[in-house]
Amino acid sequence: MAMGSSRALLILSNFKFKPTVSFSSSSSSSKSFPSFIRNNFRTRNFSAETSSSLQPPDLPRLAETARISLAPNEVEEFAPKIRQVVGWFGQLQAVDLDNVEPAIRADTEGDNLREDVPETFENKEALIASVPSYKEPYIKVPKVLNKE
């Protein structure tokens, strides 16, 4: 799998980068995205054509890894939206990083550690109450062994 230089692209490491394929269907479906995404599109004014692009995601597989079931019509509905998001991240590839020090994390503040001092979380009733199926003292879940 080819890895982009941008860390953000790791998030989408499912998707293959393919410089030859470009996205051009952005305008028609961008309305369905939250406003901050559209704003970013406008203000940054990055053109999809100038950046390296991502291969469209295999939506059924994406849904499977996220344990989400999608009906065929939903796949049709979501595919262009997901493609939009991927395209947006793909634009990051165009950013010139030649003069930027490589970083392993975006923030550089460093450690925010705590002492090894026990503290008991008091409102355990609320925690247990939020468990869908609970039978003292265990959380009950469906069968998982020999399923895969």
């Binding site: 925010n112 550690l113 002492e115 008991t120 355990k124």
Partner: peptide, 26 residues
Amino acid sequence: SQPNTSICPICMGLPGALPVLNSKVI
């Protein structure tokens, strides 16, 4: 210990709970 007694929103993975690293681990 008794099952499910040493739990909190962080180790239960509840939304919004944020992890903070224990310095002893380092």
